[in-house]
Design a protein around this nucleic acid. Structure first.
Lengths: 142, 142
DNA sequence: TTGAGAATTAGACACAGTCCAGATATTGAA
DNA sequence: TTCAATATCTGGACTGTGTCTAATTCTCAA
């Protein structure tokens, strides 16, 4: 799926067992057409850009549904809000702590050596690597 | 420093350029004597166990001060609250998503291969690995 | 057309964390 | 010791995410 529009959004939702309603299509479109990490508040602002159509409760309900159906992922890097990520491929993140901007790091080609055994009775749900970055200090510069 | 008590807490604080007040000593003691990851709320409850002595504002101010002086670290794994970690050595975490419990993973012996170059103009602030775990499903068990 | 189940809604609520202005404690010079 | 300057602490109002609920609206099969 190269180009995202509201029609193939409906197909995408159906493909994940989600009944495609107006609001759900708009929310999915906001995330997938941008391929960016957005907070719930940003999604609501985007979806209600022209005239308010979608309530806060629906935004949160819908995001929870999408998570449940593995259509999106959540990214927890900021203590004050969750980001939603339309990329469910295995990947990691750069997080710019100054700007709050997230960038994907493809997990293909990355390996982690030396992780200890898991404690008894648990299994891995996922492994996240977060590389926190900030603008360089440039000591020589006046 | 093997055993933590309120006296060597004062020394620890001074060693990090922090003026050791009553409240600060109690908060540091709560974190260091347990060597655990506590939320602000848990810290406040611990410190005010017997009789209320320390206000919410002071708990938050103090934790921010400790972070600033590199006495503790924050761990961001739960969308609803921040955990504070008395271990500032380089290390990573297991996070049990069912219980909310955090366990340290020593970073010595762990290496990450294949991370891409940093974008221009930024430097690394830190690399966090979070292994999210959950109780095993045991399909055979009745 | 109808009505039952699904989805959406406004707005009250919960709760972590912030902010502020006044109260209190500490310090050091005289 | 005393005073004043500074540092710290405090209650309580406030903010911003996110949740909950009861009422409304939509959808679609019969």
């Amino acid at each position: 799926m190269k180009q995202y529009n509201r029609d193939n959004m409906a197909d995408l939702l159906r493909g994940h067992g989600i009944n495609p309603t107006h609001q759900r299509i708009e929310i999915a479109y906001a995330l997938f057409s941008r391929q960016q990490h957005l907070s719930a508040e940003q999604i609501m602002a985007t979806v209600n850009d022209r005239h308010s159509e979608t309530s806060k409760a629906t935004v949160y309900n819908t995001l929870k549904l999408f998570l449940d159906k593995n259509l999106i992922r959540e990214v927890i890097v900021d203590p004050s809000k969750v980001f939603y990520d339309p990329n469910t491929q295995n990947h990691h993140h750069f997080y710019n702590t100054a700007s709050g901007h997230l960038t994907d790091i493809d997990a293909a080609g990355i390996s982690i050596l030396g992780l200890p055994m898991l404690p008894e009775g648990v299994e891995t749900e996922g492994v996240d690597i977060i590389v926190r970055i900030r603008p360089s200090e440039r000591p020589g510069l006046v």
